[in-house]
Deep mutational scan, measured.
Amino acid sequence: MLDDRARMEAAKKEKVEQILAEFQLQEEDLKKVMRRMQKEMDRGLRLETHEEASVKMLPTYVRSTPEGSEVGDFLSLDLGGTNFRVMLVKVGEGEEGQWSVKTKHQMYSIPEDAMTGTAEMLFDYISECISDFLDKHQMKHKKLPLGFTFSFPVRHEDIDKGILLNWTKGFKASGAEGNNVVGLLRDAIKRRGDFEMDVVAMVNDTVATMISCYYEDHQCEVGMIVGTGCNACYMEEMQNVELVEGDEGRMCVNTEWGAFGDSGELDEFLLEYDRLVDESSANPGQQLYEKLIGGKYMGELVRLVLLRLVDENLLFHGEASEQLRTRGAFETRFVSQVESDTGDRKQIYNILSTLGLRPSTTDCDIVRRACESVSTRAAHMCSAGLAGVINRMRESRSEDVMRITVGVDGSVYKLHPSFKERFHASVRRLTPSCEITFIESEEGSGRGAALVSAVACKKACMLGQ
């Protein structure tokens, strides 16, 4: 009897593995994704193909990295998701002549009506938060230079001027797309009239992360975010950046690689679950690469896999709870928690219980395998993109072996128990001629924006502006 049951459990697990095998990517698959990513990057950089390229390769006008001589107080704003952060950054000489960066910050959550109302409502709310922060720190009387981390696709015309191309991540505030974001912020500050600010720089969160990590390690020339969304930036040779005049030196390019796949480059790798996630998203047909990796989508992918296993009578005796059938019910943090389970399955059992399920031991094991399959594919897909960037940098610099540091931020990278190990191992397999160091950014977005502002202020002083 026991043997029969054991055989049935083994057969069930084997069927589960057959279904989950769809998520496995072979090294040849990853090399294919990497080569296609490089081709799209090239198209994004070139003037004649930029418009139709899915990977936009947006110039950021960040050319210099901090040298350690900029000092002063800077205000930093960070808008990239449902939370908005205001930070005071003091850049100065530390002990023994070292450079020191001290920060104080406060988080504000953005109400739904500000995210989806008008641009005026959104930026009025942001300036209200700045006003509140300055009151708390008794700094209303000071006109501070301000660095703005704005983590949406922007076409820069200068370091302090950028046109919002399109909202992502659930934002829909009308009247912002096609307009200068810094102008919208300046107008809102003017409307309030109770404080003055000098907006000197606007950067993407990947750029802010790279600059913040450069402060720790001067070989950091790539910034990457794996959180709600997924994106990367890197220092490109100016001669390859056709959208900006000049051939000397390097400029940081914001790849906006989340949109890779929007022209069909990933079609052969998309599964039924991916198509369902895409169809029910706020932007169907867009940001397809990001939807395979980002935390906004990972939990939902797992939920759809679990429903398939229920329908195949391989999980929960073929019956799903009402909660499990509800879109968004299986949160991405559950994926991390399930994979963090120590082996007694308590954590998995508790999560499934909150979803109205009474799982068996085998159910718990199957749910864990589903989570591992989805998150491992995410790590491997992400590795193909980064390997594409790094191999490109090595080739354009004609280096036999390139040493490089990548600064990384984002909740999936930082909080998932195995993502970074799987990701690092896969990147290294795909970049055999590179020695890569990964560092995690601390308060990256805010500190990085302030350091970019410090560079901009120093330049302005040198130019006598």
Rank of each mutant, 00 (worst) to 15 (best):
G223L: 01
R403F: 07
E399Y: 13
L301Y: 09
L30F: 00
Q323R: 09
T65K: 05
E443D: 05
S373M: 12
L451T: 06
L134V: 10
V200D: 10
V455T: 11
E96A: 10
T118R: 13
R303M: 01
E290D: 14
D132G: 14
R275S: 14
C382L: 11
A425D: 10
L144E: 01
D365S: 06
T206K: 01
E256L: 09
G294D: 04
E236L: 04
N166Q: 09
A378M: 09
D205I: 06
V71W: 02
E256P: 01
L324Y: 01
G261D: 01
L301S: 06
E22Q: 02
S398M: 03
G227E: 08
G94P: 05
R46V: 04
E128G: 08
K39M: 12
A176F: 06
Q98H: 03
Y413C: 02
V101D: 10
R186Q: 15
L47Y: 15
L270D: 01
L304Q: 14
L164V: 15
A173K: 12
L306A: 02
V154R: 09
A379W: 01
V222T: 01
Q286R: 14
A119T: 07
D247Y: 04
V427W: 00
G175P: 09
I189F: 13
I130F: 03
N166D: 14
I293T: 14
K32L: 10
Q239V: 10
S263W: 02
A259S: 06
A176V: 11
E399T: 13
L45H: 02
P432V: 07
I436F: 06
R186T: 05
R5L: 11
D3R: 03
P59R: 02
K140L: 13
L45W: 02
V33W: 03
T206S: 08
K104E: 12
C457Q: 08
L266A: 03
S127V: 09
K291C: 01
E242V: 01
A379P: 00
S445A: 12
M251F: 00
G385S: 11
L463W: 13
V367Q: 00
V335N: 01
K291E: 04
K190T: 08
D124N: 11
L146S: 07
L122A: 11
I163A: 12
E236W: 04
S360F: 07
T361S: 07
L309P: 00
E421L: 09
S131R: 13
S281C: 08
E70R: 14
G223Q: 01
I130G: 01
G223M: 02
P359C: 04
R325C: 10
E221L: 05
T118P: 07
Q286N: 14
D363I: 00
D158E: 08
V374M: 04
P145G: 06
T49P: 04
R325P: 03
N179E: 11
S321W: 04
K169Q: 03
D42V: 13
L144T: 04
G388Q: 11
A282R: 03
D187C: 03
L20N: 00
C371V: 08
S336Q: 10
R428C: 13
E128F: 10
F423R: 00
D29Q: 11
V86K: 05
V401W: 11
T116I: 03
A201G: 12
E265D: 12
E27Y: 07
E52P: 02
K102H: 03
G407Y: 00
K414M: 06
S373L: 12
T116R: 13
Q138I: 04
M41Q: 04
G80Y: 03
G183H: 13
A384W: 00
G94R: 11
V412L: 12
K12P: 06
V226N: 01
C230S: 15
S373A: 09
K136A: 06
M41A: 01
N313R: 09
S131A: 11
A387K: 01
H424T: 13
T405I: 02
R250L: 12
N283I: 12
M202P: 03
V302P: 00
H50N: 03
I390F: 04
K296A: 13
G249W: 02
V455Y: 07
L165H: 15
E95Q: 06
E248K: 11
M34N: 00
Y125T: 02
M402R: 07
K56L: 09
E9A: 06
G94K: 03
C382T: 10
R327M: 04
K291H: 00
R377H: 00
I130R: 00
H105N: 00
H105T: 14
K458C: 04
F123D: 06
A11R: 12
A232K: 00
D3W: 02
Y125V: 10
R333I: 04
K190W: 11
F260K: 01
L134E: 04
M121S: 15
F171G: 12
P153W: 06
M238H: 03
H424F: 13
L165D: 15
R333D: 13
G294L: 08
N179C: 14
D113E: 13
Y289G: 09
R428T: 13
E27L: 12
T362Q: 08
Y273Q: 03
Q337F: 05
R155Y: 15
T228H: 04
E112D: 04
F133E: 02
F330N: 00
Y234L: 01
S426N: 14
C213H: 01
T65E: 13
L184T: 05
I159N: 07
G249Y: 03
L324S: 03
D73S: 03
N204C: 12
S373W: 06
C461G: 15
C233W: 06
V427S: 12
G246A: 03
A53L: 00
R327L: 14
I436A: 01
L415K: 08
N83Y: 09
L79A: 08
A384I: 09
F419T: 00
K56Q: 12
K458T: 09
S280T: 12
Y297V: 12
F133Y: 06
T354M: 15
V335P: 04
T376Q: 07
E70S: 13
E128A: 04
D365C: 03
L307Q: 05
Q38I: 12
E300L: 00
F152L: 13
S151M: 05
T431Q: 07
V222C: 05
P432K: 03
S418T: 06
G299T: 02
Y214F: 04
G258A: 15
K32C: 15
G81S: 15
Q106R: 11
H380Q: 13
M115Q: 14
L122K: 14
R333P: 13
G444H: 09
V207I: 12
T49C: 05
D158A: 13
S336R: 08
M402Q: 09
Q347A: 11
I159Y: 12
E157V: 12
V91F: 12
T49S: 05
K346P: 04
I225C: 06
L75W: 03
D73G: 03
G81Y: 06
G68D: 08
E248W: 04
E312G: 12
N231K: 06
L415N: 11
N166P: 11
R394D: 06
Q323N: 15
L88Y: 10
L386V: 14
V89S: 05
V62M: 03
C233P: 02
E95V: 14
A460I: 12
V182C: 15
V374K: 00
G117L: 07
